[in-house]
Design a protein around this nucleic acid. Structure first.
Lengths: 252, 252
DNA sequence: TTTGACCTTCACGCAGCGTCAAGGTGTAAG
DNA sequence: CTTACACCTTGACGCTGCGTGAAGGTCAAA
């Protein structure tokens, strides 16, 4: 039996483009080319294609398949085992991802129901008002109305319970940080606790947490005048201390 | 705070190329361009980037992220739910794949140990001899030595038990097919049993099974003279009957 | 003024094909 | 014998999400 591209494609269930591509990359070359330039495949090529498709279904790259098939002495078992490892890794990551997505869905739904209930609207309105009084004007001048409105929106979406938690965490953070600063050791237990609280605090504002972003933010506390002033208010040098503590925190 | 590409990149943990790319596709445009053509980002852009990275970590495409972020009225919860579904699907497929790979590893290892043992070498040599006597010459003429040697290699790699099973299945296949043909109904119970046996038989030769390839092979039994003759030997029309039975078999 | 660290806009490359486009072949029917 | 029509060929671009140069302007410090 001899096959043209389409015949072989139909037999094996692949497109003609795929066969041409496999020829192009030297994965499956036709048995011969006829006088009109047509690709002609024979039995050997059918078998070879079967093997290729088998490995392809296992998710191996075409390059890897070529290695396995071209070299009969190739250790295909260990290649498959290696491949299995990478698949298991993939699954782990996927599981983690699914978990994250589910958490995120839960968070979204919580927010929406809270928005629906609007039970604490008055309470929150008051919070925003307070916020406006202390920083509103200054921030508006520097960043424009839009940024402020966005921030307010975020606050509005917070539930009463979340707000309570946040207040609690914030308080503990400053308290712990103050104590830690007095020890002078950013690697110490207190300082590390402060770094952890800072992370918790951060997670109220950020949808996602990454060590990298955490570290970068810590650096910004030092670089940016506004933030530095804020942290150095009581004890000068606290911003740098916090940065160092966070650096150590994220590195372990 | 204003950021150039690098500053923002450091803060968020992405490359400058990424930021330029996001600008290019309209996902994150800078707040303004300064007189030297530099991209300048502000607070709003930092927030927006945070959101983008959040969704990106969940595995959504940049296009989808743009949809979600650009339209504040967009139902991001259902978008996330949809995404979760696709992730779950992915995991199912991955699990299936891992299973297949593991089976395949087991099969490979079985073959290798058998090759090592070479216990049945004499037995298999005899089989190959028999095979050569009946069809060897003809096949060699038509397809060349190489194809025959490859086929022999395959046979050599079969274990004694596998061979016994194959003989058994083959016998049952022809028996059942003969009975089924007499009923004249390719959708009947007997015919479907024959199709299933044919699949089992096939799996001795093919590393992987697909309905499509099975169907194509069945058609080939009708189209190719050699195969047709073989099946029609006792009862003419059996090749077509088998093809029809297989078509029904794979369609359900 | 000279580094050196920034910034810019092209533009190719990656994997594995899908999808035209433009043109040659093979065969059966009118 | 022409004509249709289904097949074949070789380009070449497109998709995703950037990495990685290249070639050239900008800016602050020494």
């Amino acid at each position: 039996m001899e096959y043209t591209v389409q015949k072989l494609g139909l037999l094996a269930g692949v497109s003609t483009r795929t066969l041409r591509y496999y020829d192009e990359i030297g994965l499956l070359t036709p048995a011969r080319i006829n006088s009109s330039g047509y690709r002609i495949y024979g039995e050997q090529e059918v078998n070879r294609l079967q093997q290729i498709l088998f490995y392809r279904e296992l998710g191996l790259s075409l390059e890897r398949i070529r290695d396995i098939i071209n070299d009969p002495g190739f250790d295909s078992t260990s290649a498959l085992k290696e491949h299995r490892e990478s698949l298991l890794n993939k699954r782990q990551q996927l599981d983690l991802l699914i978990e994250t997505v589910e958490k995120s869905i839960a968070a979204h739904e919580r927010r929406i129901t809270m928005t629906d209930q609007e039970k604490f609207e008055g309470f929150k309105e008051k919070l925003i008002e307070d916020n406006e009084k202390s920083y509103g004007k200054e921030i508006r001048e520097k960043y424009g109305d839009d940024a402020v409105n966005r921030s307010n929106d975020k606050l509005k979406k917070m539930t009463a319970q979340e707000h309570e938690e946040l207040t609690h965490v914030t308080g503990r953070l400053y308290e712990t940080l103050g104590e830690a600063y007095k020890t002078g050791d950013p690697a110490g237990e207190l300082a590390q606790k402060a770094a952890d609280l800072h992370k918790q605090w951060l997670c109220f504002y950020w949808d996602s947490y990454s060590k990298e972003a955490h570290g970068n933010l810590a650096q910004m506390y030092v670089d940016d005048e506004r933030f530095r002033k804020h942290y150095d208010k009581d004890q000068p040098g606290t911003a740098e201390f916090l940065r160092d503590a966070i650096r150590i925190y994220i590195s372990k």
